[in-house]
Amino acid sequence: MHQTDVTALIDFDSLLSEEERLIQRTVREFVTERVRPHVSAWFEEGVSPRELAVEMGALGLLGMHLQGYGCAGTTAVAYGLACLELEAGDSGLRSFVSVQGSLAMYSIHAYGSEEQKQQWLPRLASGQAIGCFGLTEPDFGSNPAGMRTRAERHGDDWVLNGSKMWITNGSLADVATVWARTEDGIRGFLVPRGTKGFTSTDVHQKLSLRASTTSALSFDDVRLPASAMLPHARGLSGPLGCLDEARFGIVFGAMGAARDCLETTLEYAATRVQFDRPIAGFQLTQAKLADMSVELYKGLLLALHLGRLKDAGSIVPEQISVGKLNNVREAITIARTCRTILGGSGITLEYPVLRHANNLESVLTYEGTSEVHQLAVGRALTGMSAYQ
């Protein structure tokens, strides 16, 4: 049985509704037509085309799981399947959609005033505006509670000082959701591009997520009106709630990268001849393909289960930690193993596997390192926190 659609072996499509299959198919076609022909060049050149934002907005992909304000209002599973297909193209593409919808837009949708929602969400949903999410700082990644960025009251205004690091979409963004320490705890602020004292600097010489814009943000006496504060978020629960949304998309997305590696490798192994026969017929190659496929299947089923829990309103953060920990860890192992089957060809951009592996190095770290998610699961199992 020669199977290039590796998920057909477990009949994964039978677990989805017709609408979910349609959304997945639509995103797959978009990635095939608009991303695959160009993504290796984008990766090599280190660029992320801004025009894709409008195209993805027209497809309803930006903030697609949110209700109202021009958002598509799909299920969590449909959003996850879209993330899967986007990351099958490139992790940078899924990162863009994840930051736009699950971080920037979700922060406004969940914690913003009605005026803030009306001002920003329709433009962000259409891709006419781009958002970013400023939480991580140069010295505070896994421990956001230690952030040094501060906002102080000056009359009716707020004055913001500090810096953020590793911000996806940073220099592209028309508005940044920025989290800062205040006398009233950690609060979120909407900072439009062009605000005096707000600057961004792109991170260069990256070996991962090269088709994604990564920036440092700096705030030097940035004066904001009182209306810039997100009124319904206080403390770390605000930004952490946004991160749970984004991590959910990663659970599906990582499996997209893994699937693309496997399907590419199956096609290659069927035609690559050594010792007078295709390498797909050798036992060691088949053992690798079988083991990788089994891990892909388990990851897909876990992602779908978590999506159904999310749609039922019963998911908890520790369950998302299980998904991110397992699926990213297995995806990067699959990408690396596929590279061994491709041999020397696997180190070039002619094939996507090492590009996926490099990208997944970032996915393994951001929005909670594997170690932090291990400890989150450990706390859920034992009732004891190991990092406090």
Rank of each mutant, 00 (worst) to 15 (best):
T214Y: 12
E152M: 10
I23S: 06
D139C: 01
Y351P: 00
E45D: 15
V47W: 02
L300C: 10
L289E: 03
M1R: 09
E318A: 13
V273D: 11
K196F: 00
H65M: 11
T149P: 04
R150L: 08
H373V: 02
I320D: 08
F43Q: 06
T199E: 12
P49V: 01
A335F: 00
C242K: 01
G89F: 02
S102L: 04
T26F: 05
S40A: 15
L296V: 04
L266Q: 10
V316Y: 03
G307M: 03
M165C: 04
D311T: 05
N161C: 14
R339E: 13
S91M: 07
I130D: 01
T285Q: 10
G73M: 04
R339M: 12
D5S: 05
L284D: 13
R234G: 05
T32E: 14
R234F: 01
A257S: 14
T4S: 12
T285M: 09
L230T: 01
A386F: 11
A180F: 05
F275P: 00
I130F: 05
Q274M: 12
P122N: 09
R94S: 14
H305E: 12
R272E: 14
H232R: 14
Q286T: 08
D139E: 11
Q283E: 14
S227T: 15
E183Y: 00
F30P: 01
F219Y: 15
R234K: 07
R379F: 13
L240Q: 12
G127C: 05
E183K: 02
L9H: 08
L15S: 14
D13Y: 04
D156A: 13
A145W: 10
W179R: 02
R355M: 15
T149G: 14
A254P: 02
I279E: 06
L160P: 03
S314E: 15
A88N: 03
M147N: 05
G238H: 05
R272L: 08
G73Q: 05
G313P: 08
L306R: 03
P122E: 07
P239N: 03
D244Q: 14
Y351F: 14
G238D: 08
F96D: 06
E361N: 12
I334C: 04
S237I: 07
A216F: 11
